[in-house]
Simulated assay, not measured.
Amino acid sequence: MKKLLTFIFSAVICPLAITGCGEKELSIGTAFNPSMYHSFGEQMKKNMENAKGLKYSVTVLPTAGSVENVRMINDNRIQLALIQNDVSYEAYHSTGSFKGEQPLRNFVAVAGLYTEACHIVVRADSNIHKVSDLLGKAISLGTFNSGTEKNAKEIL
């Protein structure tokens, strides 16, 4: 399913957007490398570069993730970005990670590619069985300015 969505997005939607505005270069904000967002961006790049008749260069940028990506696309530093739905909502409405900031409105959603789930993973031999068991433990919140960090803070 993800391969089909990647193909449809990169082979149909992106070329229409690019040819419509005459761009010769395209930058895609993803997430750190290696990550699923970055792999997704690399596959989009391959599909777009293999599209017949289109002449442009595609750069896949490793970034912190969704929070940084929505800021970069809003500031016209990139043309496409992979952004979690909840992050784009917060940026647009100046809530959550963007509370106290001016709303970011210089972007549009093209497609919802897939549903994301949050996972909390611990060692099988740990004494952690529920979220409250994390109290007082050293944990990773994810990359600064990522959707993972935002979701971890919401859960905790």
Rank of each mutant, 00 (worst) to 15 (best):
N76Q: 09
D133V: 04
N151R: 15
F40D: 09
C21Q: 14
V70N: 02
T115N: 11
G100E: 07
L156Q: 01
F9D: 00
I139C: 13
G100A: 07
G100P: 10
N76M: 04
N145S: 10
I83M: 04
F98Y: 05
E116T: 13
H93L: 01
G53H: 03
A31Y: 12
N151T: 14
A117D: 08
K137V: 04
R123V: 03
D125K: 11
A138I: 11
G136K: 05
E42W: 02
N69H: 06
V58A: 07
S88N: 00
D86Q: 11
G29C: 13
V70D: 00
V67P: 00
A117F: 04
S10L: 07
L104H: 00
Y37E: 10
L26D: 01
A152W: 02
F9W: 08
A91T: 00
N69I: 04
D86H: 14
K137A: 06
A111Y: 08
S140W: 06
T115G: 07
K99M: 01
S140Y: 08
L54Y: 12
L82Q: 00
V122Q: 02
I28L: 10
L61W: 09
N127S: 13
I73C: 01
L16A: 15
L135Q: 10
G29N: 11
G53T: 02
S35G: 12
A111H: 04
V58R: 03
E49G: 05
V12L: 15
C21M: 13
T30Q: 08
S35Y: 07
N47M: 06
I139M: 11
Y89W: 07
L134M: 01
S66R: 04
A11K: 10
N33H: 15
D86C: 03
S132D: 12
D133P: 07
L26A: 08
M1E: 14
T63P: 02
Y56F: 12
A31S: 15
Y92G: 02
Y37K: 07
N127V: 06
G22A: 15
V121N: 09
N145G: 04
G136T: 05
N47A: 09
L26R: 06
R123Y: 08
P62H: 05
Y56V: 12
P15D: 08
V67A: 00
K153E: 06
N50Q: 13
F40H: 13
G147N: 03
P34C: 13
E90M: 09
G136A: 07
N106A: 06
A111M: 08
I155R: 06
V108F: 13
Q79I: 06
M36R: 14
Y92C: 05
A51K: 08
S146I: 01
T59Q: 14
D133Q: 05
I139W: 12
G112K: 08
H38C: 13
E23G: 14
N76G: 06
E23M: 15
A109V: 12
